[in-house]
């Protein structure tokens, strides 16, 4: 158990509910499932927990072809076959060809590690079910060597999901759950402040206004998120764009500079340009 509590860091702003959920999950040794819009810092969270609690971070990024077994271990049959051809002595012991996966590594770590299972919804629909026992009891059985791998310290497991697939109830029941909401203006100012300290007040407020305006545009396929805002601010700073350029008389009558950082989809850009055009025509 750790005495330290997670309360955000100098590079990550955590809301009260997030802190509470993380701390409860850490204390009870349960996995925590994080959902939220893309770009709200789900993946970042695991890194920050590891940093604040001073724990090693192990990452397991899930793809559509990932199987649960790969997180535990894999049996390298090809290497064994090759060694048998070469007459290597290692071939006698099957344990030499068992390659541990991320969870095995985590279970064997000397200090309690933070394990990130990133984008669990990308995998096959049965994937979470295959990990139930492993995450519940924090142990698994290796058939090839007939040994049971048990966690020395229950790792802090952070699981992120983008909601592409629904997760099974049995899996959800074992997790704490937190939904990262899109930050309100006050939180957003804090977040920006953490990333770009000393940003000019007027530039920030003008940029934030424009940003929330763009988010309000109905029918956008992909609303810009926090990470896009941060990129955009970086561009604005690099190009040294004055705050006045962001403050149009009628906010909707011109396209914000460097909008490419905010809108990532050509249909969205077109939609936005069309709206701006309509607004301008109405203004006349």
């Amino acid at each position: 158990m750790t005495d330290k509590r997670f309360e955000g860091s100098d590079t990550y702003v955590a809301t009260r509910d997030l802190m509470l959920a993380v701390n409860a999950a850490v204390t009870l040794g349960r996995p925590i499932l994080i959902k939220g819009e893309p770009g709200t810092g789900k993946t970042q969270l695991a890194a920050e927990i590891a940093k604040v609690l001073e724990r090693p971070l192990l990452q397991w990024h899930i793809k559509s072809t990932t199987r649960a077994q790969q997180g535990l271990y894999e049996y390298d049959a090809v290497a064994r076959l090759r060694d048998s051809q070469l007459g290597d002595d290692r071939v006698q012991d099957i344990a030499n060809y068992i390659v541990p996966g991320t969870l095995w590594e985590a279970f064997q770590a000397d200090t309690q590690p933070v394990v990130l299972i990133d984008e669990i919804d990308k995998a096959d629909i049965e994937f979470p079910n295959d990990l139930l026992l492993e995450l519940d009891r924090m142990e698994f059985y290796v058939y090839e060597t007939r040994q049971t791998v048990r966690a020395r310290h229950r790792p802090i497991v952070v699981i992120t999901s983008n909601n592409e697939k629904e997760l099974p109830d049995a899996f959800l029941r074992r997790c704490f759950f937190h939904y990262i909401q899109f930050p309100d203006t006050a939180t957003m100012e804090q977040i920006v402040d953490v990333h770009y300290p000393g940003l000019k007040k007027d530039l920030l407020s003008a940029a934030l206004n424009r940003f929330y305006d763009v988010r309000e545009v109905p029918g956008l396929k992909k609303k810009p998120s926090t990470s896009e805002l941060l990129d955009w601010l970086k561009l604005l700073l690099a190009e040294d764009i004055p705050a006045e350029a962001l403050k149009a008389d009628d906010k909707r009558s011109c396209i914000p500079p460097m909008y490419g950082a905010l809108l990532k989809n050509e249909q969205d850009v077109q939609l936005f340009e069309r709206l701006v055009f309509l607004n301008r025509r109405d203004a006349r």
């Binding site: 009260r16 509470l20 409860a24 204390t27 009870l28």
Partner: peptide
Amino acid sequence: TLLEALKADQANASVDDFYYLSRATLVKDE
């Protein structure tokens, strides 16, 4: 799990914190 978390003094005797805690343990869908 919620009771366990309460026993572990995670709610800090505050209704707000209890709200967050019970939400994180009992509801798994935003």
